Computed example of a mutant assay.
Amino acid sequence: MIDDPDAGPLIYLVDDDETIRTSLSRALDLRGYRVRTFASAQAFLDGYDGTSPGCLLLDYGMPQTNGLQLQKHLRESGIDLPVIFITGHGGVPESVQAMKMGAIDFLEKPFKQSALIDRIETALEIGRERSAAKRARQEFRSRFDSLTEREREIASRMVANPAQSSSKEVGRQLGISPRTVDHHRARIFEKMCVNSMAELLEISLKAATSGDP
Rank of each mutant, 00 (worst) to 15 (best):
R128M: 12
P93E: 12
T122H: 14
M101N: 06
P162E: 00
L68H: 05
A163M: 13
A115I: 05
S131H: 07
Q164W: 04
C55F: 05
M99E: 08
G61W: 02
P93A: 11
P53S: 13
E121V: 03
Y48F: 15
S165F: 10
M101C: 00
E108G: 01
L81E: 02
F111M: 15
A163R: 15
G54L: 02
R150Q: 11
L174D: 12
E121F: 01
G90V: 09
L68Y: 04
I86E: 03
L116H: 04
P162L: 01
S77E: 15
P53T: 08
I126W: 11
I84Q: 02
R137K: 13
D49Q: 13
A155Y: 14
S142H: 08
G50C: 03
S156E: 14
D118K: 08
D59Y: 09
S165E: 07
G127Q: 02
S114T: 14
Q97I: 05
L56T: 00
P110A: 15
E149D: 13
I79A: 05
R150K: 13
G47C: 07
C55P: 00
L70Q: 05
E151I: 10
M62H: 08
L58N: 04
A136W: 04
T122F: 10
K109I: 02
K109E: 10
V159G: 01
A123R: 14
R141Y: 09
G175N: 10
A98V: 08
P82W: 04
F106P: 03
Q71H: 13
L70I: 09
L107F: 09
T87P: 14
G47N: 07
E121S: 03
I117K: 02
A160K: 08
M99P: 09
S156H: 14
R119G: 01
Q64K: 11
L58W: 11
E169G: 01
I104A: 02
H89C: 13
G47W: 08
E76L: 09
P93G: 11
F111R: 06
R150D: 10
L58I: 10
L57A: 06
E169A: 11
T65S: 10
T148P: 13
Q71M: 14
A133S: 10
E125P: 09
R137M: 12
M158P: 00
E151L: 11
T65D: 10
Q64W: 04
S167K: 07
Y48C: 06
S156K: 14
A160C: 03
T87N: 12
S167V: 07
D49V: 02
K134F: 04
H73S: 14
T87I: 09
T87D: 11
L68A: 05
R137H: 11
I117N: 05
Q173S: 06
I117D: 05
P162R: 00
C55I: 04
V96C: 05
Q113K: 10
A123M: 13
E108V: 07
A155T: 13
A98W: 09
R172G: 09
R152I: 11
I120M: 02
Q113L: 14
L56H: 03
